[in-house]
């Protein structure tokens, strides 16, 4: 379905990957920890390894939460677009199949936020 319009109506999307100076957008959400009010948007090089994402990018972002230091990363469940998903830690984001504007989430079993409130 398209817009009802008086003449042809088609536009270039504003957020094509080439607009991001060599990066691509990746969205990341931590389940059951809504003290961080929304998932995050990161502009990242597609060559970055998944390990670097977890070990370098995420700690300053989520480290404020007392649960973050308690995460057992081996037990973490990952989801891509809501479906269970298994990342390869030492492969690049590209090799992990993460395209521009993909969304991943992680669930940390046993950790359910401040006083179990999912905050």
């Amino acid at each position: 379905m398209a817009v009802a319009a008086i003449r042809e109506y088609s536009f270039t999307p504003l957020d094509l990957e080439e607009k991001f100076h060599g990066n691509r957008l990746l969205y990341v959400g931590w389940e059951d920890h809504l003290m961080f009010c929304a998932p995050f948007a990161f502009p990242l090089p597609s060559s970055m390894t998944f390990r670097d994402l977890v070990e370098k990018v995420l700690p300053p972002v989520y480290g404020y939460h007392p649960d973050f230091a308690r995460i057992d990363w081996a037990a973490v469940q990952w989801f891509k677009s809501g479906q269970p998903w298994q990342p390869q830690w030492d492969e690049s984001l590209e090799k992990n199949g993460l395209r521009h504007k993909d969304v991943i989430r992680f669930r940390t079993p046993g950790l359910t936020g401040l006083q179990g409130s999912c905050s």
Binding site: G29, M35, F40, A41
Partner: peptide
């Protein structure tokens, strides 16, 4: 009380210790 008070109490406690929570990473829209 169930979902939001724990957040505010934690933030209040941290702010009192000089550790006010600032989220500096941009959100998904």
């Amino acid at each position: 009380d169930k979902y939001y008070r724990p957040r505010w109490e934690f933030w209040r406690e941290q702010a009192a210790k000089g550790n006010r929570f600032y989220n500096t990473t941009l959100p998904m829209l």
